[in-house]
Design a protein around this nucleic acid. Sequence first.
DNA 1: AGTATAACAAACATAGTGTTGGTTATTCAA
DNA 2: TTGAATAACCAACACTATGTTTGTTATACT
Lengths: 213, 213
Amino acid sequence: MAKKQDLRVIRTRKMIVDAFIKLVQENGFENLTVQEIADEAMINRATFYAHFKDKQDLYHYVFSFALDSIKEVLSIEILTTDHKVDISNVENMLSRFFRLAQDNRGFFKILTSSNNTTTLTETLRSVLQERYAEIFDNLEIKQGQTLIPTSFIIDYMTSIFVGILHWWLNNNSDFSPEHMAKLVIQLIANGHLTVMGVEMTYDPSHLDKPDNA
Amino acid sequence: MAKKQDLRVIRTRKMIVDAFIKLVQENGFENLTVQEIADEAMINRATFYAHFKDKQDLYHYVFSFALDSIKEVLSIEILTTDHKVDISNVENMLSRFFRLAQDNRGFFKILTSSNNTTTLTETLRSVLQERYAEIFDNLEIKQGQTLIPTSFIIDYMTSIFVGILHWWLNNNSDFSPEHMAKLVIQLIANGHLTVMGVEMTYDPSHLDKPDNA
DNA sequence: AGTATAACAAACATAGTGTTGGTTATTCAA
DNA sequence: TTGAATAACCAACACTATGTTTGTTATACT
């Protein structure tokens, strides 16, 4: 069991964390000083160092919470017993994910934003990639006749996902989490884009074997 | 006309730029000091400041070259006179882009890498988005019956593109630039993924109107 | 060969980091 | 309620990196 903590410790740490989140949301992570965090939290700078080794340490502490939630949502089983993808499970997983993002919008905006250390975006990416790696490890992905490397699928899907999430969070979109889930599935699994009434289809026969560079 | 420059100026600046590129490729942008750049370039630190205002300034100087090349490649006209997308032009554009990336692999790796300031990745993203915005400004994009916002298409495609590029540069892939161009087109315009022989299709009728959150 | 000036070297002020030692205030538990 | 434990405070310090300045030396241009 977690042994009883001094009230002061809990209170101070909360103030630091709250100040950190507020300041990062306002000004980004880049030029944030420990003194500013201490000021906002109304504590002495030395006290900060009594709680966290440095800024990175605080960063990890704060984001581990978010990542745990994300990982939990992503951990839903999406394969059937015979190793096929169960789309309804995927849809469920994605809905929960977008719901989580909606409920913690400010936080997820940071995760996908541009004017922060890449680490933030990469944190999300790595979690996603980890999960994708699990999912696609046992699957064979084909495009037409060509077998597509798993590493490609992972990078590809992660990018799509982060991109869509980024858009959704930054455009005050009307789309609900459930709608987003469906959209993602449709785009990834069956992505047709109709441009000006003309389908941008492409003859897959052009794409047979890699012609080494 | 560019008036004649003192040889020393040209030489020194070249040494700074070369040193910068080398060091960023080795250790990333994050913890790079001006002193280290000066040491690698074998110049005095004060001389650095005679050439560049600060590290950011150097960064902009260096990357403006790359971005100009990228912009030039992307500027190829891809629409027909009646505002339809000409796929063969797109393929041409993409081929050139991947060729450029291949020829400047180290550089593009930085552009798409993770352990650098986001600014680097974002630089590429913004250039791409700028171009996409031009292209898709006059086009109506539909998915089934739903009209998809341009902002979405831009974020979506940029993500796919950066993702694919990232994978290609980091997996020593055999795929040639021309093959990559075809792959991108096929994935974006007509992206079916076949998983374990089972097409991951999804009934588009589920996706009609946004059900506001 | 003489002049202009780039590059150098050393020093300085400034700002941020992370640590330390002594003091004050608050929490906890007997 | 009081005493012991210790969190938080404060001031100072060493250290690192930035960006500037000044006078000197070396080198490119004409």
